[in-house]
């Protein structure tokens, strides 16, 4: 019953993603060798980097779905956009909490105005604006369209923000003691990282589809309550 209403692929992908992510968790803690220069703390990469990929991938989906929604007015695109934005803010939060934990040990400080850090923090606030507009709109219909505008304007600006924070960083050399990816990373590290990408992507896609399915039912129920 649940599967027919919220879709079949969402739960399947989510379960597959959780399984792979649990396996990757085991790899990270018991299998992958410790990085020579940074030590234990480097293991944060295996959750941090895939989460960052998912955070930006999610915003890409939000932007594309928003464009489709404004263009064709298809409600399914809006369900997808909300679901992707919700997942996006979760994974952006993961990036923003795991990053400083790594930075405290590797750089000696929780926060620096490093380009990628700054960009991710701004991305988080764009997501926040997306949800605030949605919730503060006078009608759900206006909320959907205004949120789509925020999503598109954000996506258009992200390359510019990216460029400007990198440019800004070039004025401020950073206390980097270790290069993120050594050229001679052992294959175990690469494999663990790649598995992380796969697991988190599947996990995100599955939960996103599930969330979109729930949103679709909510939407239909609301339509029904307005005009039975």
């Amino acid at each position: 019953m649940t599967t027919t209403r919220t879709g079949f692929w969402g739960p399947l992908l989510a379960v597959a993603g959780v399984g792979l992510a649990l396996f990757q968790l085991w790899l990270v803690w018991f299998w992958v060798p410790t990085e020579a220069v940074q030590g234990i703390i480097q293991r944060i990469y295996y959750i941090h980097v895939p989460s960052a990929w998912v955070a930006f991938f999610a915003f890409g989906i939000v932007a594309l779905a928003s464009i489709v929604y404004l263009w064709l007015g298809d409600d399914r695109a809006d369900h997808l956009a909300v679901a992707a934005a919700e997942g996006g803010i979760i994974f952006t939060t993961i990036v923003l909490t795991t990053g400083p934990l790594w930075g405290k040990v590797a750089w000696g400080t929780y926060w620096t105005w490093e380009a990628r850090l700054t960009l991710t923090l701004l991305l988080w606030f764009i997501y926040l604006g997306y949800f605030m507009v949605r919730n503060a709109a006078p009608t759900p219909e206006k909320g959907r369209r205004w949120a789509a505008v925020v999503g598109i304007a954000g996506a258009v600006n992200i390359p510019l923000i990216h460029m400007s924070v990198y440019w800004f960083r070039s004025l401020h050399p950073l206390p980097v003691v270790a290069k993120p990816e050594g050229p001679t990373a052992p294959p175990e590290m690469v494999q663990t990282l790649l598995l992380g990408f796969l697991a988190f992507t599947l996990l995100f896609l599955g939960l996103m589809m599930l969330r979109a399915g729930v949103h679709r039912i909510e939407h239909r129920l609301r339509l029904r309550e307005v005009a039975p």
């Binding site: 989510a14 968790l25 990270v28 030590g39 234990i40 703390i41 293991r43 944060i44 959750i47 941090h48 989460s51 919700e86 997942g87 979760i90 939060t93 993961i94 909490t97 795991t98 934990l101 790594w102 405290k104 040990v105 996990l203 939960l207």
Partner: peptide, 21 residues
């Protein structure tokens, strides 16, 4: 501290995903 922070990072990450679920 490195061990604690790695543990914290994974705990926070999984808790957030779990919260979303």
């Amino acid at each position: 501290r490195p061990y604690l922070f790695v543990f914290l990072a994974y705990a926070i990450g999984w808790l957030l995903i779990f919260g979303w679920v």
